[in-house]
Write a protein that binds this DNA or RNA. Structure first.
Lengths: 128, 128
DNA sequence: TATTGACTTACACCTAACTCTAAGGTCTAA
DNA sequence: TTAGACCTTAGAGTTAGGTGTAAGTCAATA
């Protein structure tokens, strides 16, 4: 029982290389091994990986994810610190969403501007 | 007349190193020089830099920005290609916004979960 | 029983995007 | 007329985040 690294790579979308790298670096807690020394992932691991991907994909650097995971090892004591870390990151995501929305608008304006230039060029060509 | 690289660095938030690097790499069109060979930026440059930052900050890799800038040199002919490039990127930004929003929610749930664990731990402690 | 395939570790290598250094030119103010 | 601030280029170095290789173990299969 437990999933192989291959399975987890498929389920998580991370490569086997990346999974090993994350474990080495402490981005993932050390994964259990079976009787052959092979990694043996469980559902909790999978869930944690999903959270880690979520943090990573929203721009949290690996060093910070590492901190978060390190806090996990300290148990109940560290819960407030973990929560604060997540809250701070949540604010950053919200900021990013706002930036992205304004950038999207800016690019949209640019697109409209290009379209108007194209029309002008066509009319210019037609007039000849 | 025209702005020095220092001024542009301040106005754009990019370092002088980065501005030179961008020009070398073709991320910026070659900038005009004054009689001493010093870069002499104009308002159009500043505006283009602002667009470039916008593309970069929304995740467009430099190689793609380079393509966009290369199209600029082809004049009116290339307008539709430039517009399509922007439109494709706009879609990606919209996708990203959706991802970020769902991630933000996920993290929010996690925060609530951590808060509930904290309350449970406090009650546990009080009961002793 | 030999080979195939999945896994292990340790360590080297890669890419993107900067960032800095060296060596030098020019201008300005004291 | 020299010190300091600014600029130039060419090229080396750095950082983050992987990605790949080498050498070996183990278990199932032809």
């Amino acid at each position: 029982m437990g999933y192989s690294i291959k399975t987890i790579a498929q389920k998580s979308g991370l490569s086997q290389y990346t999974l090993r790298y994350y474990e080495r670096e402490g981005v993932l807690p050390v994964v259990a091994r079976d009787e052959h020394g092979n990694r043996c992932f469980h559902d909790e691991d999978l869930e944690l990986i999903s959270l880690i991907c979520c943090l990573k994909d929203t721009g949290m650097p690996i060093a910070e994810i590492k901190q978060f995971i390190a806090l996990s090892r300290e148990g109940v004591e560290a819960l407030p610190d973990q929560r604060k870390l997540l809250q701070a990151h949540k604010l950053q995501i919200d900021e990013k969403i706002k930036f992205f929305q304004s950038f999207a608008q800016k690019i949209e304006h640019k697109i409209a501007y290009f379209a108007s230039l194209e029309r002008a060029a066509q009319e210019q060509a037609a007039r000849k």
